[in-house]
Amino acid sequence: MSGEISRDEVAHVASLARLRLSDNELDTFTEQLCVVLETAAQLNSLDLSEVPPMAQPYPLTNVLRPDLIVPSLDRDEVLAQAPGAEDGRFRVPPALGEAP
């Protein structure tokens, strides 16, 4: 862990996260993320090789329910809240074509 992130890496991460940043934003975010990652580098001083990771605090596993059909949300009510809907489905722009 270097504790630093370059401007190019920030640009790459933004594209992975489906965000577009202006040049100014890219400068500001790079500087700010470096500060946070420097703080995160404190963890390097700890020997954690014998410590197992914790994903969540209360170890519930295999949470199951009976396989019964229960009422779900009303489809029309859900679709009425979507930015685009048609024929009982969500409507989106073409999925194929040039990537942004």
């Binding site: 489906r18 809240q81 979507a82 722009p93 074509g97 040039e98």
Partner: peptide, 19 residues
Amino acid sequence: DGVRYGHRVDGQNVAAMNV
């Protein structure tokens, strides 16, 4: 991502709309 709820800004394809 602009598909199921809330605000959408249009784009020429799904990925552009997401961004």
